[in-house]
Design a binder for these strands. Structure first.
Lengths: 196, 196
DNA sequence: AATTGCATGTAAGGGGTTACATGATTCT
DNA sequence: AGAATCATGTAACCCCTTACATGCAATT
């Protein structure tokens, strides 16, 4: 248990605990499988990979056997080490820090007034579209996961995470529907007075 | 419409658009009324107040009436200016940036496996407790708001924001209940089958 | 008189995004 | 050959939190 490290480090350890990956692949996975509750950028991943390697928690895959399929010569694959697994396990035990969530949409809505109904309507519609896209992905992920339950040893945990996302996104959808209706009503009532 | 400023600036402008406030009061309001979807720290607020004042978007309340008495010797109240209101209105129109949400709880759950069920159970119970506390506040806020509908001109908007929070927190509660049950089941099964 | 709370402020540092730079590989 | 994509890496910058410092006010 080294000094407090950034969350990025644990994401890397966590993903490497399942399979050997390159920085690029890690980024891709985060952007797809974890995207609805996490994000990382290259600017964090690559330096952190070097840091973790320097600490001996991960190591470059030197084995020529893993060069099988389509892996290219320039891609640097890492594997997790014993100390790395320990570090990951240790982190899992530490209390979860309070998440600080910031919804700019709510901020705008909070400070808006009746004469900006049209604008807010537009914002919420956009919010709805973006999130509906993600909502569709949940179904796909779930199907994929249930098809090969044996690939990931922790598939039940992943299903729990997915369930969290589904519930949240359902809330989003519900709220969007209701709020859009309210705003449209606002606009209709306002129809008599001046508007842009 | 000055250069792109931090969100803090708009929070300040938004709150000042309703009433004159000091930095300390702004912090208190954010920590209560906005806390479930936003946060600010003094380190952001005070410098931003000065920046906004320098740009002429807000100004120190120089009310000579309250200066003579001892009421406001140390507290510096600000008011929004005409340009400030314009800037706020301008920002309301700009598209909402994609929120980047990070749930460390989900990260841990995602990387956990069957032999850390007890730990995860603990994490989720803590999550449940923390969020149930907030959930109780929603009711209070709603009551307060409905009692004095005339105080805030934009009470309907605030109700929309509250509704968002309520739906989200209901999802949290629901998910916690289900997931805790699953984990308890895991642990029970693991207890009977001695070891692996 | 001393402690606690109110209120403003600053400095350090971390965490994270963005933009840029550089090659290699693959596709057309 | 040229374009697009893959892949690694770095540097600058920004936002934000934390910790600290200060002084006034009210309380005990």
């Amino acid at each position: 248990m080294a000094a407090k490290r950034s969350k990025t480090g644990y994401v890397i350890l966590g993903l490497l605990s399942e399979e050997n990956l390159s920085g690029y692949e890690i980024k891709k996975i985060v952007d797809t499988r974890l995207s609805f509750f996490w994000s990382e950028s290259f600017g964090q991943i690559y330096p952190e990979l070097k840091r973790l390697a320097a600490e001996g928690l991960i190591a470059v895959c030197g084995d020529p056997v893993s060069m099988d399929s389509k892996s290219s010569t320039q891609s640097i694959k890492y594997r997790i080490t014993g100390p790395g697994r320990l570090e990951l396990a240790e982190w899992l035990k530490t209390p979860v820090e309070k998440e600080s969530i910031r919804y700019e949409l709510l901020l705008k809505l909070y400070f808006s007034n009746t004469d900006s109904s049209a604008t807010m309507l537009q914002h919420i519609r956009e919010f709805e579209i973006n999130h509906r896209r993600q909502q569709l992905l949940f179904g796909k992920f779930e199907d994929q996961l249930k098809q090969n339950l044996d690939v990931h040893s922790n598939h039940s945990r992943i299903l729990m995470v997915l369930s969290f996302g589904q519930k949240l996104w359902e809330s989003y959808a519900e709220w969007c529907g209701e709020t859009i209706a309210l705003l449209e009503q606002d606009i209709a009532e306002q129809g008599t007075s001046s508007d842009e």
